[in-house]
């Protein structure tokens, strides 16, 4: 699971126009990308059991085909405050052999992104976001933030 991430970390703006596939997701109108190989599942709205006393960004736990998955409210992790749409979707990822369901607003397409369009995080980026972003891809009309899933999950407890 980590190979796309590490490959990404070592990726520079290299002459070869290699591409990587990302699943695009939208949270509060910002587009994000998750390396497609890290994605296990995409879910529609789910019945989530609240976990009392859990960190605020833990939305609860849900049953995914007999496995218990911890649901993470990504919006809270990113300190975004917009309302969650009624039909919020989730992306299931695996981290340390456990499944996490990242609750986000919308799931978009899987798109190939060229390495040449990759940029490291701009210096002025919100420090919170810097901690959970790999870098930025320049798209035609907007910028895509690459989510660093392990870091995002580690940020939940801190």
């Amino acid at each position: 699971m980590t190979s796309p991430a590490s490959a990404l970390a070592s990726a520079d703006t290299g002459e070869f126009s290699q591409t990587k596939n990302f699943l695009t997701i939208t949270i509060s109108n910002q587009i994000f990308g998750i390396p497609v190989l890290q994605v296990q599942d995409v879910l529609g709205p789910q019945k989530v059991t609240r976990v009392p006393l859990a960190p605020p960004s833990v939305a609860g736990a849900l049953n995914l085909r007999g496995r218990i998955v911890t649901a993470i409210d990504v919006k809270r992790c990113l300190n975004l405050t917009s309302d969650t749409p009624p039909k919020a979707m989730s992306v299931v990822v695996e981290h340390n052999h456990e499944l996490y369901s990242l609750i986000i607003d919308h799931v978009g397409d899987v798109i190939p992104l060229k390495d040449v369009d990759f940029e490291p995080n701009p210096a002025t980026l919100d420090p919170l976001w810097k901690g959970i972003s790999h870098g930025i891809y320049r798209l035609d009309k907007q910028l895509l933030v690459v989510l660093d899933v392990p870091k995002l999950l580690e940020s939940v407890n801190s």
Partner: peptide, 26 residues
């Protein structure tokens, strides 16, 4: 089933499970 790593430090729960009706319960 053991609780997820990020919930381990809550003393009140010893685990979680899935009930017959499919819902997760602490």
């Amino acid at each position: 089933k053991p609780v997820a790593q990020i919930l381990k430090n809550i003393d009140m729960f010893s685990g979680n499970t899935i009930l017959g009706d499919g819902s997760v319960i602490m």
